[in-house]
């Protein structure tokens, strides 16, 4: 029953996204598309993070590294003369899988706060690696010569096509994540979150499951990186700064962890807040920060928690 409610939220969000081109047209504001595309990309990243954070209780403070890996896959392949988005996605995912297997295997030896910090350490390593990689622009990053091509056509040069591609990817990946979470694999992952000893006792070794989840999560986040690189036509290590990792966590927690649709809602909400607050005052971060503190103090569980409590109240009144 609850799952259906979450699907409803996701459906509403997707429908809302689908209405953006129309809205942009009505308001004569083509920039809405650009904002929406960024939201979609971050929604994908946040959803990827939710897979380990929400379902595995593994707080990765280094997921920005995967954004960077995806984005740099685009840069590097373009330098080699490969422009196809399909190949960019494949390369990004492959690189993310390699990085996630290596770092995940080490990180998962630790628990709790130590896990948070070691994932941060690995992403900082990746960050500093690209910062000093001067052939790719180093700290400054580099503009892409063009956007990726789709089946040999430069359709994505049009913001609208890029938007539809991002929305398609988000919906597709949402379905994939939903299938993973609902599968036996997903249930073992949740079990390991709730009680690792008991899972071990009934014959499951959590390590393998957690590592697999971590790798899938990294791969999904790298897809967001490919999209972000295309949206901005610019790739720099700033994409993998630890602040970004923090923002991804904020998005997931804001929307409510362990619900997938919550992560999407959180990404939309965070970017929407940023856009609107920045329109009012140059000190928008102050208000954004106050909002975060307020959410934690007065509305634990994020937006979905709030909705759930309101529902409960209405329900009890009946």
């Amino acid at each position: 029953m609850r799952l259906m409610g979450r699907d409803l939220v996701a459906l509403l969000l997707f429908a809302g996204f689908a209405a953006v081109p129309l809205l942009a047209n009505l308001l004569q504001d083509p920039f809405l598309l650009v904002i929406a595309t960024r939201m979609l990309a971050f929604a994908i990243a946040a959803m990827g993070l939710d897979l380990v954070l929400g379902y595995g209780a593994l707080v990765s403070f280094g997921h920005a590294a995967y954004l960077g890996i995806g984005a740099y896959a685009v840069t590097i392949l373009m330098r080699l003369g490969v422009y196809d988005i399909g190949l960019h996605l494949l390369a990004g995912i492959a690189a993310a899988v390699v990085f996630a297997v290596g770092t995940g295997a080490v990180s998962l030896r630790t628990r709790g706060v130590y896990f948070i910090m070691i994932t941060l350490a690995f992403s900082q390593m990746a960050y500093f690696f690209f910062v000093s990689f001067s052939a790719l622009g180093g700290d400054d990053g580099a503009s892409l010569p063009q956007r990726s091509t789709l089946f040999g056509h430069d359709l994505l040069e049009n913001d609208l096509w890029l938007f539809w591609l991002a929305l398609g990817l988000l919906i597709g990946l949402f379905l994939v994540c939903r299938a993973i979470v609902g599968s036996r694999f997903g249930r073992v992952l949740c079990g390991a979150r709730e009680n690792p000893q008991r899972m071990q006792a009934i014959g499951f070794v959590p390590f393998g499951y957690q590592l697999t989840a971590y790798v899938i999560s990294g791969a999904i986040t790298s897809i967001a990186g490919v999209l972000l690189a295309n949206q901005a036509e610019f790739v720099s290590p700033a994409l993998m700064n630890w602040h970004r990792s923090g923002e991804l966590i904020v998005m997931v927690v804001l929307g409510g962890i362990g619900t997938l649709s919550g992560a999407i809602a959180g990404a939309v909400l965070a970017l929407l807040l940023e856009e609107t607050l920045a329109g009012f005052t140059q000190y928008w971060k102050l208000w954004f920060g106050l909002f975060l503190v307020g959410i934690v103090l007065f509305a634990p569980g994020g937006v979905q928690g709030l909705v759930a409590r309101i529902k409960l109240q209405i329900g009890s009144r009946r």
């Binding site: 504001d29 083509p30 920039f31 650009v34 960024r38 700290d139 400054d140 990053g141 503009s143 901005a232 036509e233 610019f234 720099s236 700033a238 994409l239």
Partner: peptide, 28 residues
């Protein structure tokens, strides 16, 4: 931050529709 700047420059020309952009300080 170059990535922030790239997005804001896009916003200046696409949303605010400015005629000239004057900036920046830093080469990156």
């Amino acid at each position: 931050k170059p990535d922030v700047a790239a997005n804001k420059a896009r916003e200046l020309v696409e949303r605010d529709n400015v005629d000239f952009v004057v900036g920046p300080i830093f080469s990156n």
